[in-house]
Design a protein around this nucleic acid. Structure first.
Length: 444
RNA sequence: GUGGCUAUAGCUCAGUUGGUUAGAGCAUCGGCUUGUGAUGCCGAGGGUCGCGGGUUCGAAUCCCGUUAGCCACCCCA
């Protein structure tokens, strides 16, 4: 009976596991650099948690089943609902702002394809309890720096930055109500992937004969890529009273956000692009997606503000902003740019032993070296010296420790620098004292 | 959920108009009489040719189905 992995699931042989850990390591160290705390949550959750957040339609995209207790459960497709529960349960005692991150595997029952599998790892980073754009700025900065930590730069990726609040103001200026705006945002989200006549068809039920002219104005707004143009565009919207004041305040927040991003040194990555609105209705303010600079391919990361979601999921009123970055698209990109380091794990020392008696001595020394943190390997069976030297070379070890009968009689161990071919004899009782010097300078 | 392409050894691939017991390179393992390189020499293991059915005297090869992979659509938290 031959077993295969389930569709869309991956196995990690050591080399792949090393690559995965490289990704995790970069993610984790950047999150810590911003003083985010790591948390974790269950992989299996009540199905209802996801229905509550995303609606009944979500079930078709979940790994869900009934457990033996008759509970409807699902493997987590995302972290945010679990996070909202964690936050909600302790909201009153958490020092704000809450800055947390998680690295974990997530599961979606979808057809696997390029950049998308059924099981994937995601970095989730969230700031809760801070309503101002300083939080948005820090998250976007963190996102840029984490991508940079993989060796990606300005010519490799861009952050497309948009704002659902601004859209709502613009749509209000068009005379649309809340429901109409929500529908239109859904259509704008698909603009890039839909041909123009189809889009007009979709807009018609909401705007009637106006649809084509309206689309023209939408396209005009999406064509804006610099802040000065955006500012004057907003200032010239036909808004009155509260809405006009809101627009003014929002432009101020844009200004602060962009100023912070520039000051943090990530200004060059930012592209104002109102074409991004993100499909999900719960986003409430700034939204952003990271893309390969060419604009091709799937988003590397995406996120935004979700000020109402924690409350919707039963928590307190808690403004929040967060993003998620998946490993699948990221690794595809890093590999295409030759930025995946080739990790080969090799020990610092490998023992070469003459016979049983010498092997016992080598084992004793190995135990001591390992006890103080060195990596050392020795052969499991007695083999010829020539063979052992070959294996030592192939192991990638830095030094061979040669335990022959002749050396041991004199109380020394011969140490060979495997890259240089040079050798030195060290009294066995000096070995522990001298290894750090050896590792630093090699053997001349 | 829909469509296109693909499937031969661990990997990369040969395999003739259908014709004996399906091959190569790489990798793996063993040996080359136990002290310094082996990038050498010799040898071995490893395949119901994705799976199931059909056509045929005979199928890796032709036909149908199915599963999986890749790609695109849908969707994308």
């Amino acid at each position: 009976m031959q077993f295969e992995t389930l569709p869309g699931f991956r196995e990690f042989y050591p080399e792949a596991c090393a690559r995965r850990n490289h990704i995790f390591g970069c993610w984790r160290s950047v999150a810590r650099a911003f003083n985010f705390l790591e948390y974790d949550a269950p992989v299996l959750e009540p199905l209802e948690l996801y229905i509550e957040k995303s609606g009944e339609e979500i079930v078709g995209q979940l790994f869900n089943f009934e457990d033996r207790g008759g509970r409807a459960v699902a493997l987590r497709p995302e972290m945010t609902p679990s996070l909202a529960r964690l936050i909600g349960a302790k909201a009153n005692s958490l020092k704000r702002p809450v800055k947390w991150f998680n690295i974990g595997e997530h599961y979606r029952y979808e057809r696997p394809q390029k950049g998308r599998l059924r099981a994937f790892y995601q970095l989730n980073v969230d700031i809760l309890g801070e309503p101002g754009p300083a939080a948005d700025a820090e998250l976007i900065t963190l996102l840029c720096q984490s991508l940079q930590s993989f060796g990606l730069n300005n010519s490799d990726f861009k952050i497309r930055l948009s704002d659902r609040d601004l859209w709502l103001l613009m749509l209000a200026a068009e005379g649309l109500d809340e429901a109409g705006s929500a529908s239109v945002l859904g259509i704008i989200d698909k603009l890039e992937r839909t041909d123009r006549t189809k889009t007009i068809e979709r807009l018609s039920p909401i705007l009637g004969d106006e649809a084509e002219d309206f689309l023209g104005r939408i396209e005009e707004a999406i064509a804006i890529h610099d802040f000065d143009t955006l500012r004057s565009y907003i200032e010239n919207l036909p808004l009155e009273g509260d809405l006009a004041a809101e627009a003014k305040a929002r432009i101020e927040e844009w200004s602060q956000l962009l100023r912070n991003l520039k000051a943090s040194g990530v200004g060059d990555f930012i592209q104002i692009d109102l074409g991004i609105v993100r499909g999900l209705a719960y986003y409430t303010g700034f939204v952003f997606e990271a893309f390969e600079a060419s604009g091709k391919g799937r988003a590397l990361a995406g996120g935004g503000r979700y000020d109402a979601l924690v409350k919707k999921l039963g928590g307190p009123d808690m403004p929040a902003v967060g993003f998620a970055m998946g490993d699948v698209t990221l690794v595809d990109l890093l590999e295409s740019k030759s930025l995946m380091p080739k990790y080969i794990q090799s020990p610092e020392f490998i023992a070469i032993t003459g016979g049983e008696a010498e092997r016992d001595v080598a084992l004793a020394d190995a135990a001591q070296l390992r006890a103080v943190g060195y990596q050392i390997e020795y052969p499991f069976k007695n083999q010829g010296f020539a063979k052992q030297f070959k294996l030592a070379d192939q192991s990638g070890a830095r030094f061979a420790l040669i335990y022959g009968s002749e050396e041991l009689e004199r109380g020394v161990v011969k140490v060979r620098d495997l890259s240089k071919g040079s050798e030195v004899e060290i009294p066995r009782d000096q070995l522990l004292l001298q290894v750090s010097t050896l590792l630093e300078g090699g053997i001349e």
